[in-house]
Design a protein around this nucleic acid. Structure first.
Lengths: 194, 194
DNA sequence: GTATTTTCTTGATTTAGCTCATCACTTTGA
DNA sequence: TCAAAGTGATGAGCTAAATCAAGAAAATAC
């Protein structure tokens, strides 16, 4: 299946609506395939995030670097997710985040202006956007609860929500994503096995 | 100004679009004013959150209670904010949250089915919904970073983002919202004054 | 207007999770 | 191919924040 076929399927599945031939042509004309090698940046801190990418293949991390030079991962993204810093993308402000490919990464990307067009002219696209917004809002509400969770609870939450992350990402990445030191995560796993 | 005038202003301001007379009639017909006294519940854990409310006056807390009986505040809501558990509201699942009035609370409330109608028929409403989704996504992205913040950093973040919260809510509420014990918050404030 | 509940402060103690350090094991790359 | 980098485990010690306890101050209720 080509890049676009999978993308079209995704839109139709999420939105519950069909894409017309015209819709598909419009999307094909304005979403550009882009490949990044492992460790290449999709976005660098300080830049405005001009693009939003639909991940066809591969994975990426969104992270900040603190004064001590430590990395903090905010988001781990895989196939069929959207890749961007929403704040920078919507508001055209310089981003505080970095987005880096963790594996060979293939995305279909476009700009904010074009997204606005799709929303106006493609009903399935706009329905998809609403569904994703809902999902985002719900996910945010959930992750917010993590503030009060212990290290172990955060890990178990991850195991039940995103079990495939464990196969896909190194323990260091997972620890950073959970806001834990990698030593602590190592001990937690040992503890759970007992 | 009546309940509804302020509400209409809000919609027009956020969406950047005008409401027609018909729009206003539709909204007036389907948003019901509701008053809650201090400590009354807008939503109780285990119930499906049937309503979404626009806060005209007053404030509320959204919280969970853990096994030890401790309260954890997830959200503090004031005038011109929307009050609901989005997960329960959108998905019609029993809520894990409680929402309780902290002051005499006046809302304009409606149901999911009616919101769908407004989204379909009132362009300003649907534009507003998109803007709010964007804001939500951005706010969630920001609050997510708090995982790696120290107690003091979380507090300072709050001071700069929501300074009015400090006047409005007790220190206990603020502490719970930040995921800190109230003793810790007390010490932090003392520390900062020096 | 006084009793009662709630809020805030401060001290002493405990603890979860971080930091630092070391070692073994695996993967990557020139 | 073998050096370098990355990954994961484990121990020792440290520290930020929680818990427990008690009293002062403020707000609320009768």
């Amino acid at each position: 299946m080509s890049y676009f076929e999978a993308f079209f399927d995704y839109i139709q599945k999420i939105s519950g609506k069909l894409l017309s031939e015209d819709d598909e042509h419009l999307l094909t004309a304005h979403f550009k395939p882009r490949k990044l090698r492992k460790r290449q940046y999709f976005l660098q801190e300080g830049d405005v995030c001009k693009y939003i990418g639909y991940i066809v293949k591969g994975s990426a991390k969104t992270f900040t670097v603190d004064e001590k030079g430590h990395e903090h991962i905010l988001k781990l993204s895989v196939e069929n997710w959207w890749l961007t810093d929403f704040e920078s993308f919507y508001r055209l402000t310089p981003s505080r985040f970095n987005i880096e490919a963790l594996e060979e990464l293939e995305v279909l990307q476009t700009t904010h202006a074009e997204i606005e067009e799709f929303l106006k002219h493609i009903p399935a696209f706009s329905a998809m956007s609403n569904v994703i917004s809902q999902n985002n809002t719900i996910a945010a509400q959930k992750r917010m609860q993590a503030i009060n969770y212990s290290a172990e609870e955060r890990y178990e939450e991850l195991v039940s929500n995103y079990p495939h992350f464990l196969q896909r990402f190194s323990q260091n990445m997972i620890a950073s994503y959970l806001g834990l030191s990698s030593e602590t995560l190592s001990r937690i796993k040992k503890n759970i096995l007992k």
